[in-house]
Design a protein around this nucleic acid. Sequence first.
DNA 1: CCAGTAACAGGAACGTGTTCTAGTATCCCA
DNA 2: TGGGATACTAGAACACGTTCCTGTTACTGG
Lengths: 199, 199
Amino acid sequence: MTTTAPAQVDSETAAQRARRTRIIAATLSLASRGGYEAVQMREVAERSEVALGTLYRYFPSKVHLLVSAMASEVDQLSQRLQKRQPPGKTRAERVSFVLERSTRSLQRDPLLTEAMVRAMMAADVTVAQEVNAVRQGMSDLIVQAIRGDDGVQEHDVELAAILQDVWFARQIAWLGGRIEAADVWRDIHLAIGLVLADG
Amino acid sequence: MTTTAPAQVDSETAAQRARRTRIIAATLSLASRGGYEAVQMREVAERSEVALGTLYRYFPSKVHLLVSAMASEVDQLSQRLQKRQPPGKTRAERVSFVLERSTRSLQRDPLLTEAMVRAMMAADVTVAQEVNAVRQGMSDLIVQAIRGDDGVQEHDVELAAILQDVWFARQIAWLGGRIEAADVWRDIHLAIGLVLADG
DNA sequence: CCAGTAACAGGAACGTGTTCTAGTATCCCA
DNA sequence: TGGGATACTAGAACACGTTCCTGTTACTGG
């Protein structure tokens, strides 16, 4: 947190964009192999062929780094899912589709998920911007599913926020060893039914 | 995590119970003054007049320590609130009463809350028992409010779990500087209205 | 092209959670 | 009541996130 970050991402040099990409890639790779604790800053720096100080110039803390990595993952998920309207006649069916896909996508790589979700929860005010990017991506996904072809509905943003809260909380319960992977989806599905009781 | 914990809390010697009490007291005091980062294990040990190794024998990590502290706080809150049935004619009114009291109680000491909630979120599988104690305490509170004088209702435990998830998630959003203290309560209230739509 | 500035490399150093060791005190039971 | 196990103290040691320092490289305006 000593040095000032590169002014703007879109005014970066090509070499800088490449460094940023290498750093995120190394982070995802390490997280995927060993979770939160395996993402060690020295190791990330070494793998992305960047000095430790440079790593900290790009991402001022481990939490910034992991939340940024999650933002990049959510972006990808979002692009895959938003190619077409989620199927289903009711709001509940469409939201179920989207959240089930998201949940399965995360559970496929539990250690990576653990690293990213743990960072999201550890984020303090200095990471608010990155955290908001992640939440916005998830929210867009859910809101689009709620609306379907019906357009804007009352409370749809608030409902999406609640479902996202439950979604995160259940992931944490799973990561904390308090519920099984299968229960994550059962609980979220139940929450969808209760919150979107329209069919 | 190397040494085995004292066998059972109820088979402790008087001196051991006193140590445990002093440790929790020192933890709450430090957390209240400076939040999560101010709870430093060496400092806790010194203030509770216990060697560092002993502290780790009683609480095998900082997270265990803070979650245990939260369990003790929730116990107290629970005892205060459960003295009488929460007022209100509808489930929503009663649950609002209980959660508003809980929220206000936490917001009165933001740094302590930050320390405890952050520990709850950082808890891994080794802390599952302590985390469950906290969640059970909160759940009892909410379930009792849902039931009121009406007795057992369908899904009341699941509804309580969802509300608790939202409650925690909103606390985190507040602690993460993404929403204001007042918004915490507004969002939880909204969730109550949506989940318990019975008046 | 050159000077000055910002970014980067390499690595030492520091803080705090956690573990480990050696010695001492306390407890429990035969 | 004595002796062995268990618990405790004091403090060193280790790991990893973070900061800082020194020298070098890459960029930019004149």
